[in-house]
Structures are given as C-alpha cells and as structure tokens.
Design a protein around this nucleic acid. Structure first.
Lengths: 345, 345
DNA sequence: ATCAGCAACGAAAACGTTTTCGATACCGCC
DNA sequence: GGCGGTATCGAAAACGTTTTCGTTGCTGAT
C-alpha cells in the first residue's frame, strides 16, 4: 500500500543539514564560538553560551560526525569491522555492545565487503578508510589476512594462522575439540572420524589438533584416512560423510569442525537410513540455533560468543589507555544433547 | 599472557595514514590527478594512470571515507541506526545484510546511544551526525520519537505510534496477537488475560487490539481487569501475574505481549507451584531463544525478523531510486510448543 | 593617566578529498 | 607558420568542523 504523501523524486538531495554556520548566524556569533560551546571549552561568556545553546536547540543542530572527526584526531567511537553480519559476528557484537554501553564509547559496525572479487583484503581497506579519524580503534572479525602497519590499535577476533604477535581473542578451540573427542571416547567409540574446517583458518587447525591430541591421550590409533576436509561447509561435509561411511571399516562417530558440517552428516544419514545416535554419533562445534531443532538435537561444543566480544572490548580499551596487546582464549562448554550415544554393538 | 612485543605507549598516535598527497608525490603528479585515477575519471593519460596505480599499490593507499564523503554528497553506504545491539536489532540487521550483499551497498550500523540520560532523541542526533555525507539513507530501529525533517530517506523499523505518513516496516502485530488469542480460545479457554507491553509503542497497542478483537470474534466477554501493563519487562510482568492469579476468578490462560513478560509469568508459577500448561496456559510473542530452553518450552508468536530487514532494505533502495514511501507488515507464525494446553477441568 | 593582565571573541588555517576550470602543450589542417 | 581543437594536467575552492593565535576591550593596580 504505497502512501501518496506528496513527496517527489529527489526530495532529499536538495536539502542540506543545518551547519555550525547556521547556528552561528542565528546566535550572532562566530562558528568558532559555537564550537567552543558545543565542546565545553573554556573562554566563552555565560550569556553567550546561553544564546548559542538556544540557537542549537532551536535549529536542532548536531555536529557532523564526518566533519568533526576529520579535524579531530579522536572520535570516541570504536569500529567493528566485519565481512558480513553473519550470526557469529552479530553474537560477538552483542557482547561488545553489552560491555561498551555506559563506558562513553559509541559503536560503529562496518561491513565493507561489497563483492566477492573485492573481498580479499577488505580488512585493510576498511581500516584505512575509517581509521585515524572516524574510529579510534578497531575490532576485526575473522580476518583472512594479516593486518599490519595500522595507525590505530586493532584487536582480532578469531585470528588467522600465525598471528600471535598482536592482540587476539578466540575460543579455546584446542581444548574444545579435545573435549568433544574425549566425549566420544568416553562413550566407548574407538573409530572416530573428523571433518575438518577451512585449513587456512587457525580455528580449524586447532580443532583438528585437539582431535589428534585427544586420540593420543587415550592411546587410540590415529588413522589419517578418517580426517577429511569439510571447509566448514554443509555441502562439502556431505561429500566427506559419504566417503567416510563408504570406508571398508567405517567410523562409529564423527567430530565435525562446526555445526554446519554436522548438518551435512545428518543429511547423509537421512539419505541412507542411518539412525543418530544408534548407528552413528555426531558432535559439532559452535552451537548454532539450528542445532537445537534437529532430530535428535545436536550435541556440540558451544562457543561463548558474547564473552569473546566483551573481552575484545576490554582489551581494546586497555590498549587505548596505553596497555600492551594480549592473546586471550575463551572457554567453551560441551552441550550434551541427543546426537551422541554409546558405540553400537 | 601479555605479549611483550616491544610496543610503547602512544605507538599509534604518532603514525598517520598515507594520504593522497603521499601518492601524488610518489607518482610525480598532483593530488587532483590521483583522485581522477582512483575514481576512473576521464582525462588522464594511460601512462600517468599506470604510474599512479603503481604508487597506490606500493603505498597501500585507500581513500579516507571521512574526507571523501565530506566532499561528495553520496557515499554508497546505508546506515542502520539503533539504540543498542540487542537481539531484535541484530536479527533484523542479518536480514538487511543478506539482502544488501552484492547490491553494491556498504552497511554501517551505528549505535549512538551513549548513556541513558542522553538516550532520548538519539535517532535525530545520529541522523544529523551521519546523514548527508557518511550515509545516503538510514534504517532506524525502534525509535522512540517521530523523526522528521531529515535530509536523507529514512525507513523506520517497528515505528512508534502515529507514524503512518513515512516509510515503516513491522511485524503484523495485530494479526499475530489475534492468532495467539484465538489459539487459546481454540483450546477451550474462556477467561484469558493479557499482559500488555509499553503502551507508548505502536507494537504494544496493536497486540492489545488483536487480543480484544479475537475475544470479540469468539463472542467472549472482555473483562478490563484481565489486562495489566507489563511494559515488555520481566519484573513488571511478575507483578501482573501475581495480581491476575490473586483475582477471585483467575484466568486460565495468559497472552503476554512479549516473551520476556512470559518469563515473568513462569517465575510466578514456579513460586506458587502452578504447573504449565496443566494449571495455566502461557503464550508469548517474539520467539526469543530463551523460550526454547524453558520447561515447558514456550508457545509463542514468532516474528520474521530477517524478513523485516530484507523488506527494509528493499524499500530504502526503491526510495533512493525515487520511489515513494510505504507501510509494510510482515507475517508472524504461531510456534505451538509446550506452554499452552486445554483448559483445566 | 598609564599599563599589565586577563577575559572574550573571531579570523584563519587545517584536516583529506573531489571537482571545476583555467593553463599548457600538442596535433592536424589550411 | 598560424590557428582551432583537443588531450592532459594542476591550481584552487569547497565540504563542516576544531584549534590556534591574535585582537579587542575591560579591570584594577601603580
């Protein structure tokens, strides 16, 4: 139901916002004085202050963030740079926001990845574009490349491999994967497969490493043919699951590097009539909401995403205050639901 | 484990990003020419272009968003303005993002509500601060006031009461509330209470209206003493539930204006030893994740938040192309879970 | 009466980019 | 050789704000 409210095309381009000059003219002072009043600078008579404030409220003036942050060095806002507003990122942002509220900082989440061809290097581009003026510091989510030589403090959430010399926050992927694998071992499983994630990501490497460690700790043999690459993708995981189940001596349990991969395993079980967990135990990683509504609900390793965000904010704040960088890991928790059970007889 | 990576305090303030002047000097041209190359303007020799591009890549130059959007009018960015990154807002943002990706637009979510005392009017402040230069249009989430006189197109998600003359998107709160109430009626309930939301919000008004309509359609009597104000808050809803259950002729079912209010009802049932749904049926609105893990899981009216976001993006895009405004409602769906059942005998 | 001191205010520069417009050099053609 | 036309480039203004610094005018002390 379109509303014919009498607005024509181009209605907005003609208008320009009210500037500091308008306020100055209204109050009969110079722009410089208006700026001083707005920023509570010393050196303006109280009578003038009152006049300026009256003009400000009358005209509804608010300083343009762009112009002021161009002149100033600091803007009191911290930027959150992300490839897209996916569930992972938004959950972490919630944590950042919860921690930041009331601390006098504004938050600006910027998604600068326009198209896939330009996607590589979006982190650097975004920091260059926003940094130094619009934002005082940045929290970068799941970058694909190493970021260096920036003019502002950076903390990296879910960092890429090999980035230990700067500030990073991530789940304790190693311990989480070890716990997942140990959970399967405790249920009596001996032949445990692993569908690993994107091998270029540190998180995937650590989860695989945790899987290997848990096997070693339990003195179970490590069979390389039981580890396939699902790249964190459901469709790839489908292929992996098929190959694993086609093995002459197939696994009785699969540890998936993330929940999406586990969904792929569910798909294959459905197509082959295999029951979970009676015929095959499945455990995931991440604890996405979709896992709750599966039949059976997915056993998984939950990441504490808001806590990661809160830690990221605390760290970047301490860096703004002159503190050094740090590498923080956040504990995961095993969510024992319906998709894992004792080894079939 | 702090990493002593040899960085001192103030390490970042000294550095300044590489500007267009640096590139110009490197390439032996003027800043104007560099700008033309960056923006693919006509009138620069191919040899010069190559030299400039080489300098750009060598220095890793990226135009400052602040400076360029100060000079330009358009920035190809649409802003999402919100009071905070709460679950409602982030879910809608996901929908906006999913719809915006690949359309050539960048997204900038800005949370300008610093402290509660300054919170009133954050919408206007944010638009003034970002509009006209940093963002070309804005999607405003759950504003508390009417926004008018802006220089850029605005669409409002979950608009306040009385705002029908501008572009708005919201769930079909009326139909959803009617469905919720009808669900209880179909289960045989006759004495149905309603814990309403914040009466200043249009959503709450419509949900109450839907409740009243459903009663009327079923020719059930409307008892004003069965409607109390929970203001969308859990603690207020606790008081409401206590009062309702203390009534001489208490309700057998309660329709809560949102899920948080329903949680308050759960609290009171727990404190009084009432069983859900045997002694009291409870239905909520919103479908928050917390409702899934309750015992019993909460029956509720789910909002299609990502769809709201997608609609918001589509609408603002058509407005940028010169289209008129619109008022859109998005359908809700009843999630029948464990907290509603037949009327007790 | 003179002057140091200070409060109040404004002129102007600066931030980094884009865009207009004028200047220059070169080309082909008469 | 002169000239109109075109291609290429740079000087400078502009965007809206903040900040420095100089100017003005007043107060109070000598």
């Amino acid at each position: 139901m379109p509303v014919p409210d009498g607005v024509a095309n181009g209605q907005f381009t003609s208008q320009r916002g009210v500037t500091i000059h308008d306020v100055a003219r209204e109050a009969g002072v110079s722009p410089a004085t208006v700026s001083k009043v707005m920023n509570n600078r010393y050196g303006v008579a109280s009578a003038t202050q009152a006049r300026v404030k009256a003009a400000v409220t009358k005209l509804g003036y608010e300083a343009s963030l762009v112009a002021s942050s161009m002149r100033r060095s600091s803007s009191n806002t911290i930027g959150v740079l992300l490839a897209g507003f996916d569930p992972f990122a938004t959950e972490v942002i919630k944590g950042i926001s919860a921690e930041a509220v009331g601390k006098g900082y504004e938050l600006l989440a910027y998604s600068g990845a326009i198209a896939d061809e330009r996607a590589v290097g979006w982190e650097h581009r975004s920091i260059q574009r926003l940094g130094g003026s619009l934002i005082d510091a940045a929290i970068v989510m799941t970058p694909t490349i190493r970021i260096s030589g920036t003019a502002i403090p950076i903390v990296t959430v879910d960092p890429p491999a090999g980035l230990t010399d700067s500030a990073t926050i991530a789940s304790d992927n190693l311990a989480g994967a070890r716990e997942a694998t140990k959970h399967l071992i405790d249920l009596g499983h001996v032949r445990i497969a692993h569908i690993r994630g994107r091998t270029d990501l540190l998180s995937a490497q650590l989860r695989e490493q945790g899987y290997v460690q848990a096997l070693a700790e339990a003195r179970l043999p490590y069979d390389p043919s039981l580890t396939l690459t699902g790249a964190y993708r459901r469709d790839w995981a489908v292929d992996c699951a098929r190959k694993l189940l086609d093995l002459p001596y197939p696994p009785t349990a699969i540890f998936c590097a993330n929940d999406w991969s586990a969904l792929g395993v569910y798909d294959v079980c459905a197509e082959r009539g295999l029951r979970i967990p009676e015929d095959l135990s499945v455990i995931g990683f991440d604890d996405i909401p979709e896992g709750h509504v599966l039949a059976p609900p997915l056993t998984t390793i939950a990441q504490n995403l808001p806590e990661i965000g809160a830690d990221a904010f605390r760290l970047i704040r301490s860096m703004l205050d002159g503190g050094g960088s740090d590498n923080i890991t956040v504990a995961t928790t095993l969510m024992h639901r319906g998709s894992t059970g004792p080894v079939p007889a």
